[in-house]
Simulated assay, not measured.
Amino acid sequence: MAKLIPPAEWAHHKAVWIGFPSHAELWLDDIEPARAEVVAFASAVHADGAGEKVILVAADADAADAASKLAPFADVLLEPFGDIWLRDTGPIMVSKTEARLFGFNGWGGKYDLPGDDTIGERLAKSRRIEAEACDWILEGGAIDGDGTGLVVTTEQCLLNYNRNPGLGRDDIVQRLKQDLGFSQVIWLGNGLLNDHTDGHVDNIARFVAPGRLAIPEGAENDPNWRVYQLAAERVRFSGADVELVRVPSPGRILRDEEIVPASYMNFYIGNASVVVPIYGAPDDEAAVAAFAEIFPTRNVVGLRADHILTGGGSFHCISQQIPG
């Protein structure tokens, strides 16, 4: 029997889980504006009922109450978690009713927060999804597939000693094939500068159609321009039958004089909308226009994600779709 493969993100969704900022001690002054950005994202995905059901996941009763008031269009699920990055901690769906659960160690031991290592199992149970546990560390943002068996990832993350120190490249490839049904792995090198996930691929390369991969193209003052160039070269020499699409980069985005891992690639593909994070950068409009050309049948929306980014990610990072 053929292995189940995670459906491509552009396949139809029954619903989507979205993490709702819940812990004031983590978000500090950013919690309220981050909640507003999350609700704006959720609203764009819901699209007045034309999109998909939105399930906001809140970690405590106060956050659940706030989510219900701010987003009356959404369902609210109260499940304790450490933080909102459900792309990494949630179940990886391989069909409408089946998922895979992987170990989670706080992105290599950086952030050990209660509930993050079990939220995936609890989310699956909340939807009566059959979930199979896999005995190695893998975050959803570390891989991106096109629904045909092709997957892209980075060496910086999947081969990092802080994830699966006993597994080499061949072992990882075998497990990606065994547990998620992938047939071909494209290995990129590093991810974005200052990305605490150790180079998650969903910030630098995303499939936008079967065999069609988008990668940013930055100017030389972009702190990640060389990362993008090397990623594109890796794809060209991978032997995979892949069409490259180059899109804009937000360039150098600073917070408190530090470069932050801002990326337009952390977009979310919903049933009706594609939601692109923007940052007040000169290429914001050009990025939205580029994705509008890539996804002509969906409404492409650019929404500010500055405050979500203070936690380390953006719209793709906080969401996990449920196939429909």
Rank of each mutant, 00 (worst) to 15 (best):
A305E: 07
V274Y: 07
E243L: 11
L56F: 07
L70W: 04
W187M: 01
Y111I: 03
I259K: 00
G106T: 10
N203Y: 09
A281G: 01
Q178F: 04
V235R: 05
I322T: 06
V276I: 15
Q156V: 03
V39L: 00
A59P: 10
F81L: 13
D135W: 06
A61F: 02
R127A: 09
I204G: 08
V173L: 06
V173R: 14
K110S: 06
G181M: 10
P277A: 07
I31G: 05
A34G: 07
R163L: 05
A50F: 14
K69H: 05
C157R: 08
L86G: 12
E32N: 11
T89A: 15
D170R: 11
I294Q: 11
A64E: 05
I55D: 10
A231I: 03
G147V: 03
P165G: 08
F291K: 01
L213R: 02
A42K: 14
D75W: 00
V242E: 07
K3R: 10
G312D: 03
P282M: 07
R246W: 05
A63T: 06
G168Y: 02
T89G: 13
P72C: 04
D29E: 14
V45C: 14
D62V: 05
R246F: 15
R35T: 13
F315K: 13
Q156H: 08
D88V: 08
N221T: 10
G239I: 06
L192P: 12
F267Y: 14
N271C: 04
L86T: 05
L192R: 04
A286S: 13
D65I: 04
E257Y: 00
A205S: 10
G149K: 08
L192M: 13
R163T: 02
A2C: 02
V301L: 06
V245C: 02
